[in-house]
Each structure stands twice: as structure tokens, then as C-alpha cells.
């Protein structure tokens, strides 16, 4: 809403309001029914799709093609689904500021309603993973211990055993999960943004994803009873600390003991 308001159609405000009302209504219905919106676009109204198309043409088409077919350098969005759009735009990774090894998240440029509209439009281009419903994201009944096992099997290698993130090759990195919303994590598992592989619902079913979310929630609220976590990187940061700070102190005291007194 804050960026480039003048370039909009005079009726954009009305359209957005409509989109918002429709989106809220359909989302409420979807939550109430407790069913996962499997066929992407099933819950999106034609108005929303049209509003999304306009926003898409305005903000996304220069890289991803006029109808989401992609260009030589940038990927096609056909079949990526609403979940991918929601992930990329809610985290502010899209629209990207510049191409590079890894697109970095930033404060998002679009409102919830606008993102929902673009997601509905992209979902209408081809079936893909849908935005998870509140019922899917409800991990209250999940098994925390199993979540820990699944996290250590599937997520830990890149995102660190404490979810603090870590380095990959060629300058890419796996981000920290400490401040990430459950919905964003679910969408990332389902759509595999950038270098992250896809963990489909068939091989990592929703119950398992819920268990993982519960474990990540546990990690996010965990405190350090022991002391400095030093990024929870284990021997790497702890070793650096001991070698530089610890050994430095020992050397300083040794020099003091041996120094000549005047």
C-alpha cells in the first residue's frame, strides 16, 4: 500500500477491499470445515484471481513472464501453487531486490490481501501446494519427541540442531528458524524455496510436519540454562571462544606472574 500508490488503477482500492472480504470469508470457511484446500484455487473467487493477475502483471511479470511461464533466467510459476507465493511474498524474498546466490528476506512490500490475490492467481495457472489451513498448522496434538527425531533426520543438517541456521556451499546458507512463523515453515517444507529441497506431504505427511513444527516451537521458546550458547554451533564457536578468550586470559595472567616488579 505504501509503495508507488499512484500507479494503481482508480478502482484498485475497491478491488482490494472486495478481495479482502472474499479472502476472509473463504479462509473462515476453510478453517471451519477443517479441510485442506487440496485443489489450489478452489477457494479463490474469480474476482480475487483477477485482482491477483493485475498485481502480478504489475509487479512480477518482468521476471516470471506475462502469464507465469518464466523467462530464460527466472523460473516459471506454473504449478508452484499458492503456498510458494505466500512463502516468498510474506517473507519479503519476492519481489527480489537483485539476483544472486540467495535472495534474502526483507520487510514485505505487499499487504496480506494483495499476497492472497497473487497467490490465488498463481494457483489458477496450474495445480500446486495450497496455503496450509489453520487446522493443518495446529500442532497441539503432535508428538514432541517424534518431532525432535524427524527434525534431526530431515532438518538439522542444514538448519542446525538448535534451529539456528548454517552455511551451505557457494555462499548460500540455511536461515535461522528462530523467528519464523509455523505457516512459513510449513510452506517452505512443501515448496522447497531456493536451494531447500521439497519435503512432500507423501514422504513427510502432515502429522510429521506438525510434529516438526511442535519441535521448532519448542526450540524457539527454549532458554539457555547453562550460559552463552555462542550461536549453538557446538565445537566451532566454542573452540574459537576457548582459544581466543580462554587462552588469551591464561596468557595475560602468565605474563603478569612473570613480569619484573619495579
Amino acid at each position: 500500500m505504501t509503495r508507488a500508490p499512484r500507479r494503481r488503477h482508480p478502482f484498485a482500492g475497491v478491488a482490494v477491499l472486495l478481495v479482502g472480504l472474499v479472502a476472509t470469508g473463504t479462509a473462515f470457511a476453510a478453517v471451519n470445515a477443517g479441510t485442506s484446500a487440496q485443489a489450489s484455487g478452489a477457494v479463490a473467487s474469480q474476482t480475487q484471481v483477477e485482482a491477483g493477475r493485475q498485481l502480478y502483471v504489475e509487479g512480477c511479470a518482468s521476471c516470471h513472464g506475462i502469464a507465469g511461464e518464466g523467462t530464460e533466467e527466472y523460473p516459471s510459476l506454473i504449478g508452484t501453487g499458492a503456498a510458494a507465493v505466500d512463502f516468498q511474498m510474506q517473507t519479503g524474498k519476492m519481489p527480489a531486490t537483485s539476483p544472486g546466490v540467495q535472495v534474502i528476506g526483507k520487510p514485505r512490500n505487499y499487504s496480506d490481501d494483495e499476497i492472497a490475490a497473487i497467490a490465488a492467481y498463481v494457483a489458477s495457472l496450474g495445480a500446486g501446494p495450497a496455503i496450509p489451513t489453520a487446522a493443518e498448522l495446529d500442532f497441539a496434538g503432535a508428538d514432541l519427541s517424534e518431532g525432535g527425531t524427524l527434525f534431526r533426520t530431515n532438518c538439522m543438517q542444514c538448519h542446525n540442531f538448535a534451529g539456528k541456521g548454517g552455511a551451505l556451499s557457494d555462499g548460500a546458507f540455511a536461515p535461522s528458524l528462530m523467528d519464523v512463523d509455523s505457516k512459513i515453515i510449513w510452506e517452505a517444507m512443501l515448496t522447497g524455496p531456493q536451494n531447500m529441497p521439497i519435503f512432500s506431504n507423501e514422504t513427510l505427511p502432515p502429522e510429521s510436519k506438525q510434529a516438526i513444527l511442535k519441535w521448532i516451537d519448542h526450540l524457539q521458546n527454549d532458554k539457555d540454562p547453562g550460559g552463552l550458547a555462542l550461536g549453538s554451533m557446538g565445537p566451532v564457536s566454542e573452540g574459537v571462544f576457548v582459544w581466543i578468550v580462554g587462552l588469551g586470559l591464561v596468557l595475560a595472567v602468565t605474563v603478569w606472574i612473570g613480569a619484573k616488579v619495579r
Partner: peptide, 10 residues
């Protein structure tokens, strides 16, 4: 069919 292109399974 459970594994999409770009998917990873342990």
C-alpha cells in the same frame, strides 16, 4: 510419484 522434482527423502 511421492517425490517431486527438487524433493529430498531421508
Amino acid at each position: 510419484s511421492d517425490i517431486p522434482v527438487g524433493g529430498l527423502v531421508n
